[in-house]
Nucleic acid binder design. Structure first.
Length: 183
DNA sequence: ACTAATCTGATCATACCCTGTATGATCAGCGCATTAGT
C-alpha cells in the first residue's frame, strides 16, 4: 500500500538518487530478459548488471517497475506452467531463479550500532546519507536502503502491537517525533 | 507523459537456537501504490 505521507512536499524529503537513463541498447537487453523471465534471480540480475554496465539494484528496480506496469502474465494461467514440459529450459530457468536469492547479509554489531544511530536520527535517509553510511560501514548502499525499509516496517508494526506499557508509549512518542520530522 | 525512485506491508528464507524468533530479501500495489526528474 502506498504511503499516507503525501503532505510532505515542502521539504522535498531528502535527496533521491539521480534518475537512471537507460540507453536503447540497455532497454533491449532488459526487455528481452523480462520476456524470458519477469522474476530473475540474483545471478541473472548480476549478469544483466554486468552486461549493461549498471548496478544490480537498478536492475531489480527496473524489473519491479516493469512487472507493475505489465502485471498481466502471471495471473491468467498458472496451470500451463505446471504441466508444460514443452519448453523445459524455460520453466526450469524460472524455477531456478525463484530459488536464487541474494545471500543473506549479516551485520556486525558495530555496523548495526551505526545503522541504528542513523535511523534514530532520520528513518528516511536520502541518497547522500545512505552513501555516507556505505562508506562508514562497508555495506553496499542497496543493502543499507533495504535495511532502512525493513527497520521502518518493523518499527511500525511493533509500536502498533504494544500499546500498553509505558516504555512502548515512550517509544511511540519517539517514533511519532521521528515521523513528524519529515513534514 | 513516461518511468525511475521510493514507500508500506505482507511474505518468504535463513541464521541462531531449541521448534521459535529475529531479521534480511523479495514482492505487490486493484478506483490498478506514490513521488518526482526529464
Amino acid at each position: 500500500m502506498a504511503q499516507d505521507n503525501s503532505p510532505n512536499k515542502t521539504i522535498t524529503m531528502n535527496q533521491r538518487r539521480s534518475r537512471t537513463k537507460f540507453t536503447e541498447d540497455q532497454l533491449k537487453i532488459l526487455i528481452k530478459a523480462f520476456d524470458q523471465n519477469p522474476y530473475p534471480g540474483y545471478a541473472t540480475k548480476q549478469r544483466l548488471a554486468l552486461e549493461i554496465n549498471t548496478d544490480q539494484s537498478r536492475i531489480q528496480i527496473w524489473f519491479q517497475n516493469r512487472r507493475a506496469r505489465h502485471q498481466c502474465q502471471k495471473k491468467s494461467e498458472p496451470d500451463e506452467d505446471l504441466e508444460s514440459s514443452q519448453d523445459q529450459d524455460h520453466s526450469e530457468e524460472e524455477i531456478q531463479s525463484r530459488e536464487d536469492r541474494r545471500c543473506r547479509t549479516s551485520y556486525t554489531s558495530s555496523q548495526l550500532h551505526t545503522l541504528i544511530g542513523a535511523f534514530m536520527n532520520n528513518p528516511y535517509p536520502g541518497i547522500d546519507t545512505r552513501e555516507q553510511l556505505t562508506k562508514e560501514i562497508g555495506i553496499p548502499e542497496s543493502r543499507v536502503q533495504i535495511w532502512f525499509q525493513n527497520r521502518r516496517s518493523r518499527f511500525h508494526v511493533q509500536s502498533k502491537r504494544e500499546p500498553d506499557d509505558q516504555d512502548s508509549e515512550q517509544r511511540q512518542d519517539q517514533e511519532q517525533d521521528l515521523w513528524d520530522e519529515r513534514v
